[in-house]
Amino acid sequence: MKPEEKRRMRSAARFYAVQALFQMEASGVTVDTVAREFETHRFGEVMDGVELSEGHVDLFRKITSEAVNHQARIDQMTDRALVAKWPIDRIDPTLRAVFRAAGAELVAHDTPPKVVITEYLSIADAFYPEGREKAFVNAVLDHMAREAHPEAFR
């Protein structure tokens, strides 16, 4: 498989993780329930001309499970990045899912912070194509990345 195809499949796994985290919050289902549903009904689909393979299910599982396992820490990091009058529970649920998925990669994976920011900005852009949210997402993710990995920004 070509490197570009691998990158696109990792991006798609991240996109699905955001959707799954949103669905978990909206419906109150567990991470295991939503992961099974996505693995049964979404993986194997073609997205951006690439079929999502079982190999990228692992990244999807890691992001969703780590987002749940580290949710308190991730939400606290997000809160510190937000304006004082806008705690995380007041922001759009899709943005919460973006921040939780990105936060999972920042606190529990070895994904470079700049890759996390780039990938999740692209996902935010897919959900909010008019672009107003992109600067907001960029600022919050940058703050979260600097908190999680200060050494990467020296």
Rank of each mutant, 00 (worst) to 15 (best):
Q23T: 13
A26V: 06
G28Q: 04
V29K: 11
V31F: 08
V31S: 15
A35W: 00
E37H: 13
T40C: 03
T40A: 10
H41Y: 14
H41G: 04
H41P: 00
G44K: 03
G49E: 03
G49V: 09
V50K: 01
L52R: 08
V57I: 15
L59T: 07
F60C: 08
R61K: 13
K62R: 14
I63Y: 04
T64E: 02
V68Y: 02
V68W: 06
N69I: 04
N69R: 15
Q71P: 02
A72R: 08
R73F: 00
R73S: 02
D75E: 12
Q76M: 10
M77C: 02
T78V: 15
D79S: 02
R80W: 08
A81G: 15
L82V: 10
V83R: 10
A84W: 04
A84S: 12
A84D: 09
K85S: 12
I88R: 12
R90P: 00
I91T: 02
P93Q: 03
P93N: 04
A101V: 10
E105I: 08
V107D: 00
H109W: 05
D110L: 13
D110Q: 13
T111D: 09
T111M: 11
K114M: 14
V115T: 14
I117A: 09
T118R: 13
S122Y: 05
I123V: 11
I123K: 07
I123F: 03
I123D: 09
D125E: 12
A126I: 00
Y128L: 07
Y128D: 03
Y128S: 04
P129M: 06
E130R: 12
G131S: 05
E133D: 07
E133Y: 10
K134I: 14
K134C: 01
A135M: 14
A135H: 12
V137M: 07
V137K: 02
